[in-house]
Design a protein around this nucleic acid. Structure first.
Lengths: 249, 249
DNA sequence: ATTATTTTTGCTGTTTATTGCATTTTTTAT
DNA sequence: ATAAAAAATGCAATAAACAGCAAAAATAAT
C-alpha cells in the first residue's frame, strides 16, 4: 500500500469521525503504530489535521474563516490591544468583553501565555479557542444578533457568580464627567455586572470616543482602574482624565 | 513496444485503479523498473498523474477526496440538513448540536423561519445569529478548543434546566445494535444531557458512519426518534435500522 | 546502404526513503 | 505516587530513487 493511500484513508477517517485513535488506524490499515504516527505527524505538519496525544482530530472546526476584514480604525485598536497585553500574566483570570477592540486583544494574545478567560462574545470565544494555553469559559445566555454577545437576565446572573482579576471592556461613550454611557439599557445592565465581577476594570477605548456621552450610564469614570487609548499617556487629549484615580496607558 | 503505448497503458492503469505500483507495471509491461520510473516521471511532469514513492496515483484521487472545500462530504451533509429543515416549524423550540452536519443545518435555515434555538456550538451560534427571526440561546461553559463547543459540568447543568421540542444531534459512531457511541467520555455525558433535554431527538448522520462503533455509549438506537441520512429512506443500507421505532428520513 | 547522431533502455553502485523494532522519555490516568 | 499508554529516538533491513555509463535502437545525414 502506498503512503499516499494510507494518508488519504487517515484523512477520511478523521473527517468522518472528527477524531480517531492511532491504534485503531494501525489495525485498520494493518501497519505498525509507528507508521501511523509518522503519517499523522506529516499530515499535521501539512495542516490537514491536528495531531493530539493518542490520535488526531479534524481541522474542520478550527479554521478561523471569520477573519474580519473591515474593522474601523484597526490601527488604533491594534495599538490599544498591544498595550493591554502588557497587563496579562500567566495564571491570571480575566474577562474580555465584546467589540472590535477587545476582539483585537484576543487576536494578539501570544500562544505561550497561559491564563483563564471568561467572555460573552462569540467572536472573542472563537478567537481564543485557537490559543492553546488559554482556558476559555463562555458565559451563556440569549445571543444578541448585532453584537454577537450573550445578553439578558441569565447572562447577568451567570456573571454574578464569577470574580476575575482583570476585566477588559469597551464602551460606547466615555466622558470624564459623566463616566461610561451606552445607547442600550440592556448593555448597560450587562456592563455593570461585568464591572462588579472584576477586581480591576480596564477600559479599552479609542481616543475618538473621549468626551462623548449617551443616555444610559454604566458607571462613573472612577470605577475604571486603567484606561488604554492609542495615544501616548502624556497626550493632552487625556488631560481631563488625569485628576481621577485612573492609570493611563 | 513504443514509448507512447507504454505511457498510455500506465495512464490507463492509474485512471482505472487510482493508483499503481511501479513494480507491477514493470512486470506487466515487461520492461525494467527504470523505464517505468522514467515514464512516470515524464507523466508527472506533464501533470498527467502524480508520482509518489513506489508508484503513482491519479490526480483525481487526491483532489476529489481531499478537502477542496473545508467540510468533508459536504454534499451529503447538505442533503441531510435539507431533510432536517422539514421538521422545523414556526414557534418551536429546538436544540442544535455541534459538528459540521449540524452547522450545515444552521446555515440552511431560511430567513423567514421563526423559532428559538439552543446550542452549545460557537460556530452554530455564529451562523444562527445571522438569521433575523431565530432567537439564539447559547449554553455557556468551558469551551473545548477542538470542537468549539461548551463542555463540562456547568454545561451539563445548564442543559438540565431546559426542555426543547426537537434536538438535532450528530454522533461519532452509530450502530443498529450498539447504538450511538463516541470517542470521548466527556462528549457522551454532554450528549446524554442533550437527549434528556429534548422531547424528541433527531440524529443527523451520513451513511458512511452507519455500523461503526467506539468505546463509550451515548444511548441506545431506540432513544433516537428520527434518523436522517443522505440516503433514500428505502435504501437497503438502512435495513438494520428498520425494526426499531425510528423514523427514517 | 552506411555512418554518425540522438534517443532510449537496462545495468551498476550509491544515496535516500520507508518501515518496523527496541529502548528511553514523556504524558496520562488512577 | 504509581502504572499504563503514547511519543520520541536510534537503529537496521528493505525498497525505491538517482546518477552515470554503455549497449541497443531509432533517427538523420551523406
Amino acid at each position: 500500500m502506498l503512503k499516499e493511500e494510507r494518508q488519504q484513508t487517515i484523512l477520511n477517517e478523521v473527517d468522518l469521525h472528527n477524531r480517531i485513535l492511532l491504534t485503531d488506524i494501525a489495525e485498520t490499515l494493518d501497519v505498525s503504530i509507528d507508521t501511523v504516527r509518522r503519517d499523522v505527524k506529516e499530515l499535521d505538519a501539512d495542516q490537514k489535521l491536528r495531531k493530539v496525544h493518542g490520535g488526531a482530530i479534524s481541522l474542520g472546526f478550527t479554521t478561523s474563516s471569520t477573519r474580519n476584514t473591515n474593522i474601523y480604525a484597526l490601527q488604533e485598536k491594534t495599538k490599544i490591544a498591544q498595550k493591554a497585553l502588557s497587563l496579562l500574566t500567566d495564571g491570571s483570570v480575566i474577562f474580555i468583553d465584546g467589540g472590535t477592540t477587545c476582539l483585537e486583544l484576543a487576536r494578539l494574545i501570544p500562544l505561550d501565555l497561559e491564563f483563564t478567560c471568561f467572555t460573552l462574545s462569540l467572536p472573542v470565544a472563537m478567537e481564543l479557542s485557537s490559543k492553546p494555553n488559554v482556558t476559555v469559559i463562555f458565559i451563556g445566555g440569549e445571543i444578541s444578533k448585532d453584537a454577537q454577545i450573550s445578553i439578558g437576565a441569565n447572562t447577568i446572573h451567570n456573571l454574578s457568580e464569577i470574580k476575575v482579576d482583570y476585566s477588559f471592556i469597551g464602551t460606547g461613550y466615555v466622558d470624564s464627567k459623566y463616566g461610561l454611557t451606552e445607547f442600550d439599557w440592556d448593555i448597560v445592565q450587562l456592563k455593570k455586572a461585568v464591572i462588579k465581577a472584576a477586581k480591576k476594570t480596564v477600559l479599552l477605548c479609542i481616543s475618538e470616543k473621549l468626551n462623548s456621552q449617551h443616555r444610559y450610564k454604566t458607571c462613573d469614570i472612577n470605577s475604571i482602574n486603567t484606561m488604554i487609548t492609542e495615544l501616548e499617556p502624556e497626550d493632552k487629549l487625556l488631560n481631563l482624565f488625569r485628576n481621577h484615580d485612573i492609570r493611563l496607558l
